[in-house]
């Protein structure tokens, strides 16, 4: 449905933001762009939406070049911008009716307003709404044209837990209706809960992509494993291998051990701590998460 070749783009200050993003998204799927702040997620979306013309590479949205495309293509695509993109002095419902007027067959505004709980603040000017309320209005504005493709830039930013579950449920429902949804997030949890397919972006490049199970199972130290043990201790201790598994210091003072872990590994690890006179300040063991994958490949924390 949409293919970003090795896309390159410069920002307003002519800094190279994207340098080889590959991305493809399909109808009926949620595709997540995951990466730390400043990785180039929003710039990637701007290229895909046609708001920005990349310096190189190819972008196709529903088979067309979004930068050249006209109202016909734009009516099939809904966009929720990170900053919301909402006029501040207007009230939510008149704004949504105005946006709905741009389409031949918009969604029913009243239903959308009820579904997203916008009724509760329908008569408050947008500038006085909370971040989560603004976010819901922006989502409604992206949906009002009944799009086939939906771009959501950081959809869960500023949402309280309750609006978050309302928004997530709606995203899942839209996916089952066959919409192609492309969202960005720097929250692992969002990607793990929502995404069918994840592109991990770092420093303007796609560094890894796959389904969530593929990414958490098949990469990093100890390929094919499903458990990860991390612990924190003083930096720079040469633990080497423990019962056949290598201890990696991912960031100074944080060590990880990935593999088909058994009680024997824990025993050997405790022996290694004793040998180096180390008492870890924190120990954590869990199935590998996207966060671990990201840490493995970039050496950076996501947040």
């Amino acid at each position: 449905m949409k293919d970003l070749g090795p896309v390159e783009a410069l920002d307003n200050k002519m800094v190279r933001v994207l340098d080889g993003v590959h991305l493809r998204a399909h109808p009926g799927e949620v595709t997540a762009l995951l990466g730390p702040n400043g990785a180039g997620k929003t710039t990637t979306l701007a290229c895909a939406q046609g708001l920005l013309k990349p310096n190189g590479g190819t972008v196709r949205l529903l088979g067309q070049d979004p930068h050249q495309a006209g109202a016909g293509l734009r009516s099939r695509v809904g966009v929720m911008l990170q900053e919301g993109g909402l006029p501040q002095a207007v009230r939510p419902v008149p704004l949504l009716r105005h946006v709905a007027g741009m389409y031949a067959q918009p969604r029913n505004v009243d239903e959308l307003v009820a579904r997203l709980g916008i009724n509760a603040f329908a008569n408050t000017p947008i500038r006085r709404l909370s971040g989560g309320q603004k976010q819901r209005v922006a989502l409604a504005a992206a949906l009002v044209g009944n799009p086939e493709v939906l771009f959501l830039d950081e959809p869960s930013a500023g949402l309280d837990p309750q609006s978050r579950s309302v928004v997530f449920e709606l995203i899942q429902e839209l996916r089952s209706e066959g919409l192609g949804i492309i969202l960005t997030t720097h929250l692992m949890d969002d990607a793990q809960r929502l995404a069918d397919y994840v592109f991990i972006i770092d420093a303007g490049r796609t560094v890894l992509h796959g389904t969530v199970p593929e990414l958490t199972a098949a990469t990093g130290p100890g390929t094919g494993t499903d458990r990860l043990l991390t612990f924190e201790a003083r930096p720079g201790v040469p633990f080497g291998t423990v019962a056949g598994l290598e201890v990696t210091e991912t960031v100074p003072g944080r060590y990880s051990l990935a593999g088909p872990l058994t009680p024997a590994h824990l025993q050997a690890l405790a022996a290694a701590w004793a040998a180096h006179s180390v008492m870890p300040s924190a120990i954590h063991m869990a199935p590998r998460s996207l966060e671990d994958v990201f840490l493995d490949i970039s050496g950076k924390e996501l947040r």
């Binding site: 939406q49 046609g50 708001l51 109202a71 734009r74 009516s75 695509v77 966009v79 911008l81 990170q82 900053e83 919301g84 993109g85 909402l86 006029p87 501040q88 946006v99 741009m102 389409y103 922006a138 504005a141 044209g145």
Partner: peptide
């Protein structure tokens, strides 16, 4: 506030 960007993604 990004209103110009948003409206330019609509059919307008």
């Amino acid at each position: 506030y990004g209103v110009l960007r948003f409206l330019s993604t609509t059919p307008l």
